[in-house]
Design a protein around this nucleic acid. Structure first.
Lengths: 241, 241
DNA sequence: CGAAACGTTGAGCTAGTTCAATCCTGGTGG
DNA sequence: CCACCAGGATTGAACTAGCTCAACGTTTCG
């Protein structure tokens, strides 16, 4: 039982992990830290020397606009590394915040670099993780653009549900954590707070899905998927996809 | 003088390329092909066994929605590899099209994999290239979302101008290629064709920038940057950023 | 209990959409 | 050389999705 287990599980869900890669990961040095809800973790402009691992809780990345507006660009569940990209892009062009009380670990870049040069299969898997990240960005782009608010919201809910399911244990009885307030949901979809509220209301009234006390409950998975135009291909969950 | 020179130049613009890495790149096998404007290059669902290099021209990636709408998610200038990510994510979750008559090369994955395992610095640079891609996605997400149509359009123009400038020779006398029609511009920004037209009109009337015969002409760089809230950090053009 | 944060609702307004016509440009065939 | 055509650009006008403003309800937690 290691603090790195969530990472091992996550990487195992997107590709094959050999015994030796598993050991390499388990041996990574990690410094644990608690962060409270809405606490900043990394700032735009920072030059991190380590990458964050989400051990429990949920983090989110966001860009801040000159007019004070915010665009959330991603959220990160247990086992994910939100700023893994700082391995090869030193300067943060966005910020990282905890959406609920979370436990995170700092893993020094040096150690990851060493692990990556020791195993090309591990390198491939970590690279793949950042590529899946990018695939998710593409979908969010569409959520904010052509897909439109209604379908975009549904798409985001589909994604959260599925990613939680895959993360193992985070999805049960048709429900999973989704500790965003409606302002944050709006900031992820590029719509107004009021409109986010009304979109959720509509999903609830149609018996499709609802959010209560920070948890997403999916009532009709088929309908939600249809409303979203959701195709899970982009999450590349199978090693051969 | 090799067909791989554009790639070497591109990678050199985002990091340091050693002599031996340069040689590794120059030795990559490549099959050249001409594609006409609006011709598809790779389709959603494909499982490519090679990656594309843009030798000249401009390509674009896009997602197709169930209602027939399109979301452009990126465009790619000379020296870029639009589907480099298929190295570690086999299945295309979007399509690739040429926006103007272009010359492209196919570089087999096998050869790239071999080069990457031969040189960890080259691996780092290619990985970095995909990470910068992702950083651009984040900005486009904001273009489609919180930034709003006016600033988003300006931001896109800034990005095209700067990337063309860096690509070397593509930007001269305040102008560079930008062979999108207004429908494609609208599809990149998630707005209507009419609105895209009016946004461009406004930029022209204010003496900031204009598009004529497939070329972008920047009249007032300062004003364009201000209108966009443009901060070039995200392009990570310097090796230490 | 009371305060603070979050969620919900109504009403009026506006940015952006749709529809549809017209104009412009470059390319083609006679 | 010119008439014609197709794709793209531009414009006007009516409409509406989504926004802002502002109030009020609800939950959480000290």
């Amino acid at each position: 039982m290691s603090l790195l287990d969530p990472l091992i599980a996550k990487l195992g869900s997107i590709g094959h992990l050999s015994e030796s890669d598993r050991n390499l990961l388990a041996a990574l040095p990690i410094t644990v830290r608690n962060v409270g809800a809405n606490q900043p973790v990394v700032h735009q402009g920072d030059l991190p020397k380590s990458s964050i691992l989400v051990i429990s809780g949920i983090l989110s990345r966001f860009q801040e606009l000159t007019d004070g507006g915010r665009q959330l660009v991603s959220f990160h569940l247990t086992g994910e590394m939100p700023d893994l990209h700082t391995l090869y892009i030193r300067k943060m062009d966005h910020s990282l915040v905890a959406l609920k009380d979370s436990v995170i670990g700092h893993v020094p870049h040096d150690a990851i670099h060493a692990a990556v040069s020791a195993s090309s299969s591990l390198m491939a898997l970590l690279w793949r993780a950042t590529l899946i990240d990018a695939a998710i960005f593409r979908q969010w782009m569409t959520n904010n653009g052509r897909r439109g608010p209604a379908a975009g919201t549904a798409h985001l809910l589909c994604e959260i549900a599925l990613r939680s399911k895959v993360a193992g244990g985070l999805y049960a009885d048709g429900a999973c954590d989704m500790p965003f307030n409606q302002q944050q949901l709006a900031d992820a979809l590029g719509i107004s707070l009021v409109h986010a509220n009304r979109t959720l209301k509509s999903l609830k009234e149609r018996g499709i899905a609802l959010i209560e006390r920070g948890r997403l409950r999916v009532l009709d998975w088929e309908a939600l998927q249809t409303a979203a135009g959701f195709d899970p291909t982009y999450l590349h969950l199978k090693a051969d996809s």
